[in-house]
Simulated assay, not measured.
Amino acid sequence: MAIYLDVIWFLNFCIDFLLLWLTSVILKREVSKKRLAVGAFLGSLYVLFLFLDTAIIYHPIIKFFYSVFIIITTFGYKRFGYFVQGLFMFYFSTFITGGGILGLHYFLQTDAKIVNGVVKTQSSGMGDPISWLFVILMVPIMLYFTKKRVDHIEVRKLRYDQVMNFELKIDSLTLKGVGLLDSGNQLHDPISKQPVMIVDMTVFADQIPSAVINHAKSLDSIGELVDEPNPWQDRMRIIPYRAVGSANQFLTGFKADSIGIWDNGEKYETSNVIVGLSFTNISGEGEYNAILHPKMLSNAKVTSTAS
């Protein structure tokens, strides 16, 4: 069997380059293509060492220190934590890509036969052109898939990091729920300039007085309310807003006595809040039932800390 060493080396160089690139993308590190190429070149040299008549290069310790050398060459050494993060993420990228390719290979493999009740498989070895073609095609696909999954996880983590428990107090009523701290929420009461949070009335409708709900639902396009007395008449507010692709609209709200928000074990409390009422579901997956205004936290005071 003929082995084209230059082809194998170049293939490994390309794979190492992509793995180091994926590592830099996941860690959000600015690395020049030149350093990525140098690191990939050092990594690809290991393939040449495999043809040397020595067994020490197969030892896990040698492999570990060789990968350490590759990471330091590619990303540099700023501090120990920085280096360890790069090393472990490089292993993660390598294992998840290699494991995915290996899993797909065996998933699609059809060369198994049953002979006299015994399952037998056949393989033509490392030099099989079909196997190499499979690797060449699958490495970029697995790298792309891994990057997309990591990006998705980061988005989900960002969303959950911004989700906080809250407790609203209005007269003798207390509303408890989970709110999303949204930096894009810039709603303010035009008169008092107080920030406006939005609560999901599909969740809290049964706790709000029916007269308040009727007022909110009767709001027409010019911001007028049906004249119907309700216990929160003095608290009612009309907040104009404009959504993308639509004309000016109005949101009905009311002034709350106070709101408590829990963030990282600390309770922030403020009375500087208007509660807007939304009659459409604001979280399709039910992760939260209110949208918090960022200024509610900046204007709040820490009243208690979890032990």
Score class of each variant (00 low, 15 high):
190 P>A: 02
167 E>C: 14
282 I>L: 12
283 S>K: 08
223 G>N: 04
158 L>I: 10
8 I>N: 05
249 Q>C: 00
130 I>W: 14
285 E>I: 09
257 D>I: 04
206 D>N: 13
303 T>S: 08
87 L>P: 07
158 L>A: 13
83 F>H: 06
73 T>D: 02
288 Y>A: 01
92 F>S: 00
264 N>L: 06
213 I>K: 09
154 E>A: 06
113 K>N: 05
206 D>L: 07
304 S>K: 13
174 T>Q: 06
203 V>N: 06
70 I>V: 14
303 T>D: 07
290 A>C: 13
55 A>P: 07
69 F>N: 01
143 L>S: 11
234 D>W: 01
116 N>M: 07
184 G>Q: 04
122 Q>Y: 15
123 S>K: 12
177 G>R: 10
213 I>C: 05
258 S>T: 11
152 H>T: 11
151 D>K: 04
236 M>E: 10
79 R>G: 09
181 L>R: 04
173 L>I: 13
158 L>C: 05
227 D>Y: 10
80 F>C: 02
107 F>S: 01
292 L>T: 10
241 Y>F: 15
160 Y>P: 00
294 P>L: 06
239 I>G: 00
227 D>Q: 13
57 I>Q: 14
98 G>N: 05
137 L>V: 13
104 L>K: 00
92 F>L: 13
246 S>R: 00
170 I>S: 10
265 G>K: 08
259 I>Y: 05
102 L>H: 02
30 E>F: 12
279 F>T: 02
62 I>F: 15
183 S>W: 03
210 S>F: 10
140 P>C: 03
242 R>T: 02
72 I>T: 08
20 L>H: 11
46 Y>C: 03
156 R>C: 05
42 L>F: 15
223 G>W: 08
31 V>P: 09
20 L>T: 12
125 G>K: 09
278 S>M: 11
90 F>V: 06
149 R>D: 00
243 A>D: 01
219 L>N: 02
113 K>H: 09
78 K>C: 01
261 I>H: 03
5 L>R: 07
80 F>I: 15
181 L>N: 05
251 L>K: 00
173 L>G: 00
178 V>K: 14
220 D>H: 06
287 E>Y: 15
249 Q>S: 11
144 Y>H: 02
291 I>A: 09
290 A>M: 11
76 G>H: 07
286 G>S: 07
211 A>H: 01
212 V>M: 06
65 F>R: 01
97 T>K: 03
18 L>N: 00
263 D>C: 09
296 M>D: 06
305 T>I: 15
267 K>T: 13
216 A>I: 02
290 A>F: 12
89 M>K: 04
162 Q>L: 15
265 G>P: 10
160 Y>I: 09
